[in-house]
Simulated assay, not measured.
Amino acid sequence: MTKSPVPSVAHSEPSLCVLAQQYGYAKVVKSPKQSMGLAMFAGAFIALAFVFYITVTTGAGDAPWGLVRLAGGLAFSLGLMLVVICGAELFTSTVLSTLSFAEKRVTASQLLGCWARVFFGNFIGASMMLVLVLMAGMYQLDHGQWGLNALSIAQHKIHHGWWQAFALGVLCNMLVCLGVWMTFASRDPLTRAVLLMLPVAMFVSSGFEHSIANLFMVPLGIAIAEFAPVSFFQNLGIHAADYHDLTLVNFILNNLIPVTLGNIVGGGVIVGLGYWLIEQASAESKQQGQ
C-alpha cells in the first residue's frame, strides 16, 4: 500500500524589513573589538573611494559637468561595495539598527554605544588613509591639480549653511541605506555590488553629504593647505591664505555635526523606521483579517 504524499508547507521568505532588522541587530551585539576593527576598515574603504573620486574628476577640463560628476560617483561607489562585500562596519549604514531598537531588541544605551564605537572606528580608518595619502604626495599628481581639486572640494563642503548641510546629509543617507536595503534581496556578491552603484553614484554626483567621507575629505584639504610646500601653491598660482577658512572648527561646526545628524535622520529614521512602521501596519492588517 503506497502512502499518499505529504503536502509540503510553503515557507515564505522573510521580508527585506525583517532582514534589515537582523542586519542592524547583529551590528549592535557584535563584540566591541570586532566592531572597532571592522569600523576601521570601513573608514579606510570610504577614504580610498574618495581618493578614486578625486583622481577621476581631476583635469576634466571642458567635459560636461554632469558626466564628470557621474564618473566620480561611480568611482566612489567602490567604497560601499568594499564595505558590503568584504564586510565592514560603516556608521551611515549602521544607523539602520534603529529597527532593532524599535523592536525593543536593544536598549538606547546599546544603540548609541554601537554608533559611537563605529563612528570612532571609521574616523581612525579614514585618518590612517589620510596620513598615507599625504606621505605618498598624491596632492602633487597632475602638476598639483589633484591637490587643488581636493582643496576646492573641502572648502566647498564647509560653506554650506547649517540646515543645508543637514538636508544634504538626510538625502545622502537615504540613498546609502536604500542601496544597502536592496542588497538584502540577493546573496550573490556581484548582484549586490551592482545594486549599490547607482544609489551611491546619485548621492555623490548630486553633492549630497556623507559624514564618514567628509572625515577624510575635509581633513585632507586642511592638511594640504597647512603642510604642502610653498612650491605647490606657487606652481598653481594660488596662495595658502586662500584656504584660511579650512579649519577643524569650521569643519566640525559647519559640516560634520549637521551632516551626521542628517545621516541619522535619513537612514535611521526615514528609511529604517519608515519601513518598520509600514511593516507593522501590514502585520496588524493581516491579524485583523484572520
Score class of each variant (00 low, 15 high):
Ser205His: 09
Leu111Thr: 14
Ile278Met: 13
His143Gln: 14
Gly72Leu: 06
Leu215Thr: 04
Glu89Gly: 09
Phe41Asp: 12
Phe251Tyr: 01
Ala71Gln: 07
Ser15Met: 03
Leu90Met: 05
Met217Asp: 02
Leu130Arg: 07
Thr98His: 15
Pro32Phe: 01
Ile257Thr: 09
Ser77Asn: 08
Val68Gly: 08
Val259Leu: 12
Gly272Pro: 10
Thr98Met: 15
Gly125Ala: 05
Ala71Arg: 02
Ser206Trp: 10
Met40Tyr: 01
Ala185Pro: 01
Phe76Asn: 00
Gly73Asn: 08
Gly59Tyr: 03
Thr191Pro: 09
Pro64Ala: 08
Asp242Asn: 13
Glu103Ser: 15
Ala223Glu: 02
Ala26His: 03
Val28Arg: 07
Lys104Asn: 14
Ser31Lys: 06
Gly289Lys: 15
Leu198Ala: 07
His156Gly: 13
Ala42Met: 02
Leu67Glu: 13
Asp245Arg: 13
Val131Cys: 08
Gly144Lys: 14
Leu253His: 12
Asp62Leu: 11
Leu67Tyr: 10
Gln288Ser: 14
Ser282Val: 08
Val29Arg: 07
Gly37Met: 12
Met182Thr: 15
Lys33Tyr: 13
His239Arg: 15
Pro64Gln: 05
Phe120Tyr: 00
Phe184Lys: 15
Ala102Asn: 11
Val194Arg: 02
Gln110Asn: 03
Leu19Thr: 08
Ser109Val: 15
Met36Tyr: 02
Leu215Gly: 04
Leu171Gly: 11
Pro189Ser: 09
Ile252Ser: 11
Phe91Tyr: 10
Ser211Thr: 04
Ser100Gln: 07
Phe76His: 15
Asp242Glu: 04
Ala42Val: 03
Leu178Val: 12
Trp163Asn: 11
Gln234Val: 04
Asp142Gly: 00
Leu151Gln: 05
His244Ser: 15
Ala116Gly: 13
Leu248Asp: 09
Gly125Val: 05
Ser77Glu: 05
Asn255Tyr: 06
Pro219Gly: 06
Arg187Met: 07
Ala241Pro: 12
Val170Ser: 13
Val29Glu: 08
Leu195Val: 02
Gln290Val: 14
Leu90Asp: 03
Leu195Ala: 05
Gln145Ser: 14
Ala241Met: 05
Ala213Tyr: 04
Gly221Leu: 11
Thr107His: 04
Glu89Pro: 08
Ala63His: 01
Tyr53Gly: 05
Thr98Glu: 15
Leu171Lys: 06
Phe227Cys: 09
Leu112Asp: 02
Val230Asn: 11
Leu96Val: 11
Ser93Ala: 11
Leu82Val: 00
Phe45Asn: 07
Gln21Asn: 15
Ile153Arg: 11
Val56Asp: 07
Leu256Trp: 11
Tyr23Gln: 09
Gly79Ala: 11
Trp162Lys: 10
Gly37Trp: 02
Pro32Met: 13
Ala88Trp: 03
Lys33Pro: 01
